[in-house]
Amino acid sequence: MIILEQKPYEEILKSLEGEEKVFLVGCTLCATTCRVGGEDELKEMQEKLEKEGKKITGGVVLEAACQAIEVKKKFREKKSEIEDADSLLVLACGGGAQSVRENAERVKIKKLVHPGLNTLFQGEVTRGGHFEERCSLCGECVLEQTGTICPITRCTKGLLNGPCGGSSKGKCEVDQERDCAWDLIYKRLEEIGQLDKMKEIREAKNYSKLMKPRSLVLGR
């Protein structure tokens, strides 16, 4: 999932400067799990903004802000509330905020769209309220060779051929609280009898796979 945090409130207020009426948009997926864009957070934002003298014309928590069809459907239903507002404040990921802008226009709603969150990383929920980055979406998965532990993400330097000289007692030179990915990989490969995989030289990664913006169309 996408891990999110709310922008500093002062930054949100500044983006709404000169606007009186705001429509709030949340998302039931990542933004709800991260407790920054669900029903509760929309209500909280409404109360805070009303104290600043803003009027909240309405709000919606989308099933998935990143799905065009869902945004268009909900925005048609809420069209009058949205039309009444000066702008939309989106409490969803960066992809969600952009999908909101694009799809609002597709249903003939032309409004300013403000992002209310910072999009941090693709992560795992290790326990309630704890999120850890595990995948960098690199487009060329190496987990088969590394005991299902990603060195591109979990090694700060993204090294492919083993630990650097900064690995010490299982920790990383960058932050002694952080596990050295290659120490984890070494232990895992040893445990599953696949240490030979660590001895093979990994060629330099093909970063053209990361050329932005990426897109995918499913064949039939």
Partner: peptide, 28 residues
């Protein structure tokens, strides 16, 4: 060499590269 990480130095805001690692640099 691989090189120390950027945040350990005096320009911690810099974009770290690490396009290659030390093994791949030797190969090159």
């Amino acid at each position: 060499l691989t090189g120390d990480y950027t945040t350990l130095g005096d320009h911690p805001q810099a974009k770290p590269v690490f396009d290659l690692d030390s093994v791949q640099l030797l190969q090159a």
